[in-house]
C-alpha cells in the first residue's frame, strides 16, 4: 500500500511533464498537420539553455528558466520560418523527413557544442524530501509539477477563452475556411509552432535540474510525446493531457509491479493496444468528416 502511494505520487509528477510534451506536439499536428520530430530536440534545447543560464552564467534560477523557455520559443519560430514555411504545400511525409533531419542536425550540434559529458543544473531547493508517512517527494519535483499545472491551465484558458484561441481552433478544424474568415494562416502556423516548441522547451528546462542534461536526452522524449499524442488521439488536446498522465501511470505501475526492465516499453505496449482496439485514441470523439 505504501509502495502503491509512492508509485501514484511519482506517476503524477511524471504525467505532468508528459502532458506538457504531449499537448505541444498534438497542437502542432492538429493545426499544421506536421509530425514534428524536432520536439525532443526543443526539450533538449530548453534543458541546455537552462544549464547555460543558471550554471556558467549564474543567473537566478527562475529567471534562467523563463529565459530558456523564451529561447525555445525563438528556436521554434526559426525552425518554422526556415524549414516548414517553404514546405507548406508539401505532404506530411516530406515535412516529417525534414524534421527528422533537423532532429539529427540539432543533436549533433549539441554534442559538438557541449560535449558528451552530462551537465547538471544547480537549483535553490532543499534536497531533503518532504516526507508524509512513508511517501516522500523532493521539493524540486513539487515545484516542477506546480509549474506544469499552471502552464497546462493557462494553455486551456488561452485556447478556450481568447480570440487567438478561437482562431487557432478554427484553423485546427479547417484552415481554408478560417482563412476566408480573416485568420492569417501563416501567422497562425508560426505562433502554433512557437507555442508547441515553448511547451517542449519548458518541459526540458523544468526537468533539467531533476535529471542530467545530455545530447541524447531528447530521443526517448520524442517517442514518448508521440505515445502520449497517439493515446489521446491525434490532434486532441484534452486527450493528450490525459494521455500524459495515463502514460506516467502505466510506466510507474508497470515498472513497480510487472518488470522494471520494461518500464519504457510499457508506454509503447499501451500504444499498440490502443491502436488495435481504439485506433482513434482513448479520448477522441468520433472523427468529424467533411
Amino acid at each position: 500500500m505504501e509502495q502503491l502511494l509512492q508509485h501514484l505520487l511519482n506517476a503524477v509528477v511524471l504525467g505532468g511533464t508528459y502532458a506538457l510534451l504531449g499537448i505541444g506536439l498534438t497542437l502542432i499536428f492538429g493545426v499544421m498537420r506536421v509530425a514534428n520530430f524536432t520536439h525532443g530536440e526543443l526539450y533538449t534545447f530548453g534543458a541546455y539553455m537552462a544549464y547555460a543560464l543558471i550554471g556558467p552564467l549564474e543567473l537566478n534560477f527562475f529567471v534562467g528558466l523563463a529565459i530558456a523557455v523564451m529561447l525555445g520559443i525563438l528556436l521554434g519560430i526559426v525552425i518554422e520560418f526556415m524549414l516548414l514555411r517553404p514546405l507548406q504545400k508539401s505532404d506530411m511525409d516530406t515535412t516529417m523527413l525534414v524534421t527528422i533531419g533537423a532532429w539529427i542536425a540539432l543533436q549533433n550540434m549539441e554534442l559538438f557544442g557541449w560535449g558528451g559529458v552530462a551537465k547538471s543544473v544547480p537549483h535553490p531547493f532543499p534536497t531533503d524530501p518532504f516526507v508524509i508517512g512513508s511517501v516522500s517527494v523532493a521539493p524540486l519535483r513539487v515545484f516542477v509539477v506546480c509549474v506544469a499545472m499552471v502552464l497546462l491551465v493557462s494553455f486551456y484558458l488561452m485556447i478556450n477563452r481568447t480570440t487567438f484561441g478561437i482562431a487557432m481552433r478554427a484553423t485546427f478544424q479547417d484552415p481554408e475556411v478560417s482563412s476566408l474568415m480573416g485568420v492569417k494562416i501563416n501567422r497562425m502556423f508560426t505562433l502554433t509552432f512557437a507555442i508547441g516548441s515553448g511547451l517542449a522547451a519548458s518541459a526540458g528546462a523544468l526537468l533539467a535540474p531533476v535529471f542530467v542534461v545530455v545530447p541524447m536526452m531528447g530521443d526517448l522524449v520524442t517517442l514518448k510525446a508521440f505515445a502520449v499524442v497517439i493515446l489521446g488521439g491525434l490532434g486532441n488536446i484534452v486527450g493528450a493531457t490525459i494521455g500524459g498522465f495515463v502514460l506516467g501511470l502505466a510506466e510507474e505501475l508497470g515498472a513497480g509491479y510487472i518488470d522494471s526492465g520494461y518500464r519504457d516499453a510499457m508506454g509503447f505496449i499501451l500504444i499498440i493496444a490502443v491502436l488495435l482496439l481504439r485506433p482513434q485514441g482513448l479520448f477522441a470523439p468520433r472523427e468529424r468528416t467533411g
Partner: peptide, 20 residues
C-alpha cells in the same frame, strides 16, 4: 533485483520498490 533500460531517466519506480 531491479533493472533499468540504458536510457531511462526516471528510476522512481525501481527505487520505490528497493526502498521497501
Amino acid at each position: 533485483v531491479e533493472t533499468m533500460a540504458p536510457d531511462a531517466t526516471d528510476l522512481s519506480a525501481q527505487l520505490a520498490k528497493i526502498k521497501q
